[in-house]
Design a binder for these strands. Structure first.
Lengths: 110, 110
DNA sequence: CTAAACCCTCCCCCCAGGGTCAAGGTCAAG
DNA sequence: CTTGACCTTGACCCTGGGGGGAGGGTTTAG
């Protein structure tokens, strides 16, 4: 992890580390778990905002962040988003290949 | 088209409209063609920078922006990008559905 | 003459941070 | 005690394709 990422999470309200007397941030074990969880979720394409239910699930005392109903809902929303994006990109590929072959044939015939 | 979009294209160096005496932008017929072309290409997911070859092709006197070799290359690059993205999203969907079913079964068993 | 409807430039916002900076704290060796 | 190396802090600008709005000039219809 980079310092930037952790501080960005804090700016998003996902972390609230204690401050030492000299102003340095102090992270406890829970913070470490949260950072790892957020990083994993962001790599799945969720937005920082969409990670909230998972973190609440952890803070509620669960070992896993994804056993709460809200987390399952967040998973399903993300899956639907991914599938819609795949459909869009598939249609886009069709359009592009069509344009390419069209332009190619136009070149050879002209 | 919105004013914002056209001025953004100008900021990217894709358009260079004349200025009237009062400072207003004056667009000629070629500008209109370019704006339409850029908009179409951006809707295909190309970046503003990637539209350069198409515009040069138009300015070179071609009726179509995609008959120049550089345009065909740009199409092929974009197709490859789209295919790679589809592969990534497909793998991501696998991961997400795996996580979802895992979390669901964990809930029912615990 | 005036009000509406244009146009202009300039600035802040999105998202998940990355890069760079000056200022200041901490800790070891000398 | 001081120096140097390393750490942290907040603050600023950058990404792409614009959206939204402020504040001001211009043009046109009534």
């Amino acid at each position: 992890m980079t310092v930037k990422a952790v501080r960005y999470y804090e700016g998003q309200g996902l972390l609230k580390p204690r401050r030492a007397a000299n102003g340095y941030r102090v992270y406890d074990a829970e913070d470490v778990v949260i950072v790892r969880e957020v990083k994993a979720l962001l790599s799945l394409g969720l937005t920082a905002e969409q990670t909230y239910p998972f973190i609440e699930c952890l803070r509620a005392g669960n070992d896993r962040a994804d056993v709460c109903p809200a987390s399952l809902t967040a998973y399903r929303i993300r899956i639907a988003e991914v599938e819609q994006r795949i459909d869009e990109l598939t249609a886009l590929r069709e359009r592009l290949t069509g344009l390419l072959t069209d332009a190619e044939s136009w070149r050879t015939n002209e």
